[in-house]
Design a protein around this nucleic acid. Structure first.
Lengths: 237, 237
DNA sequence: CAGTGGTCTAGACCACGGG
DNA sequence: CCGTGGTCTAGACCACTGA
């Protein structure tokens, strides 16, 4: 048994304080010398902790300006978390229209994946995403009602902000990491109708579990993607 | 215009030397003080370069032992580059059987993606992968003949090593990064026969471009995955 | 036990941002 | 211009490996 190194403890402490809201998204952290003094470590050790948090995209550092708690932006939500590419490898910007919003008891699967109590409820949202003007993706989203009290979105109109921006601004939930499982499935009748493809046509099914800054599951998303002229892009290293 | 920082130049130089074979896979690099002297930088700066190479998995560092050029291993090939999971999220170890090996002119697409000359040739390999004993994935692999001279593999028997281990051991090609594009496609007759599914059944189509230590494309792979009880797992952050 | 990489410190100087 | 983060150095001490 040996204690974790100093820089790891500083990193953990900073992450916890940011998650607790000591510095809200967009706010500047104290300067390096100030933080180093506060934690009783050298500036070099503090920098190592900050570098790790920056790599996890919890903070953003700007030379000459300061260190800021990362704000969810549409660019980030789309660039990191929306992996759809067109045939040339470009990343089109999707449009989204929600058509259903519910509050209902969580299913057994939702309870398991979102770590919910037996009789917990979820906010259930369904939306259609259009890529290059054409219906391309049908999404069912489940959110723990407890963390998303009073969740509201306009239906049947184009949504302005990315959902993850909305989560952060209105519910204090910052998505930092998502896990996805992809399969190929035949289009159910309802999805075929909404996506404008044949019933039974092959669709890319994406099941996503999103996690917050403390790595707790905060969103379960089930999506069906029509890969007509589109693909899901991955990079592994 | 300003020069890149020292640590970046040291990193580039080290990467080039490793790629050139100055230290072959598995060999130990000189110690930190020795390398620092050789490059005329402080040990701290050298460490930063080494840390970057380690993050890219080009080298592996072991406290008390030394710094080693990374060797391709089946574990790494499977863990990083084979993203298939079963229903419980476990990562089964696949078995592979090649059934076709050819040397033929590169197609236009292969020339474009692999950056080949007009009349270049490719080694073409087809194999079937079994997961948990059942046929699950059909792969067509194209390799630039110029970098894979004398490529040979036994056909119709289970393959011992992962391909990427074979590439490194026999052809000096180290795969560090792959890009993939995923779509859902109906099973062609031939694939359906080999995978034991209905013709037209939805398959997960994976198009992979693999890159070496200098980020040059070295392999084009087209795979069809039958996601029956299986899924392709991704993590984004 | 000698030698390796891992941690941590203290401090100098530079490049950049914003008043 | 001042204060910020970015780079770079020199050196101490620790933890681990392997002969």
């Amino acid at each position: 048994m040996s204690a974790p190194p100093l820089y790891a403890r500083v990193e953990r402490e900073l992450r916890a304080r940011i998650a607790a809201g000591e510095w809200p998204p967009g706010a500047a952290l104290p300067t390096e010398p100030a933080l180093a003094r506060r934690f009783g470590v050298s500036q070099g050790t503090l920098r190592r902790a900050l570098a790790a948090l920056e790599a996890q995209r919890l903070i953003a550092r700007r030379q000459g300006a300061g260190t800021y708690v990362a704000e969810a932006t549409s660019e980030r939500a789309l660039f990191h978390f929306f992996r759809v590419e067109d045939a040339a490898g470009r990343r089109p910007v999707p449009r989204s229209i929600a058509h259903r919003l519910d509050l209902r008891p969580a299913s057994a699967e939702e309870r398991a994946l979102l770590a919910l109590r037996p009789r917990a409820r979820v906010v259930a949202l369904e939306r259609l995403r259009l890529v290059e003007g054409r219906p391309a993706m049908l999404e069912s989203i489940a959110l723990p009602a407890a963390r998303f009290r009073g969740f509201a979105l306009p239906l049947h109109v184009e949504l302005e902000d990315e959902l993850y921006v909305h989560y952060q601004r209105h519910h204090g939930v910052t998505v930092l990491r998502v896990e996805e499982r992809l399969t190929a499935e035949p289009a159910p009748a309802e999805a075929a109708r909404r996506l404008g493809c044949a019933r039974g046509a092959p669709l890319l099914a994406i099941r996503r579990l999103a996690h917050d800054a403390l790595d707790r599951p905060v969103e379960l998303r089930r999506a069906l993607l029509l890969t007509r002229g589109l693909a899901y892009g991955v990079e592994l290293r």
